[in-house]
């Protein structure tokens, strides 16, 4: 061990912790959906063509069934800046993170004009070494997203690994060696 991080204490305090609900800054809109589709060259008219959507079984343009886009419409977005952590702030030795698992369960379509809200919950926290950091912390978070009718439209589960930089690991190892 190169730090005094107490994973059992963190687990006891944070597993099951929820954030207060957040109402998305804007309604689900055409243009963010268009930009989202553009990045992967998705031409599906259900997502891009308002007239086509109106005649579809949904009666409206819908979002691609992707957790990331749902979280965007259910959150406050990157600008203007707000304090909206991905998860209730779980203390970790490092600050760098990588998203390793994405799981989205879809229950209802998200239509243009829907007002989404979200709350986040820590499902699990554990410690497991990775190549970059022997004391990396893994956090499993759930985002529960609802529409204006209080229907849960999707649940997104992400597994993040939070780690230190190589310099931070080396510095911690040197410090513990001297102690």
């Amino acid at each position: 061990m190169t730090s005094n991080y107490d994973i059992e204490k963190v687990r006891a305090e944070y597993i099951g912790k929820e954030t207060p609900p957040v109402l998305g800054r804007y309604a689900a809109e055409h243009d963010p959906i268009r930009r989202y589709c553009h990045m992967v060259e998705d031409r599906n008219p259900l997502f891009l063509d308002a007239h086509y959507g109106e005649k579809s079984r949904y009666g409206a343009t819908v979002c691609p069934p992707a957790g990331w886009l749902a979280m965007y419409f259910a959150g406050l977005g990157p600008w203007p800046p707000t304090i909206e952590p991905l998860l209730p702030i779980v203390p970790t030795p490092g600050r760098r993170f990588v998203n390793l698992v994405v799981e989205t369960e879809n229950f209802k379509p998200i239509k243009v004009g829907d007002r989404l809200s979200s709350k986040k919950r820590v499902a699990d926290v554990y410690q497991k070494a990775i190549r970059l950091d022997p004391e990396a912390v893994w956090i499993v978070g759930e985002t529960i997203i609802s529409n204006q009718d209080d229907e849960v439209v999707c649940i997104v589960r992400n597994t993040y690994v939070v780690h230190r930089t190589l310099q931070e690991v080396a510095a911690a190892q040197a410090k513990m060696g001297k102690a």
Binding site: M39, D42, N44, P64, A66, W68, L69, V102
Partner: peptide
């Protein structure tokens, strides 16, 4: 990013 990769694989299914 994970958001990009998710979009790429969602497209495989929705197409």
């Amino acid at each position: 990013s994970s958001g990009f990769t998710e979009a790429a694989l969602v497209r495989v299914i929705t197409d």
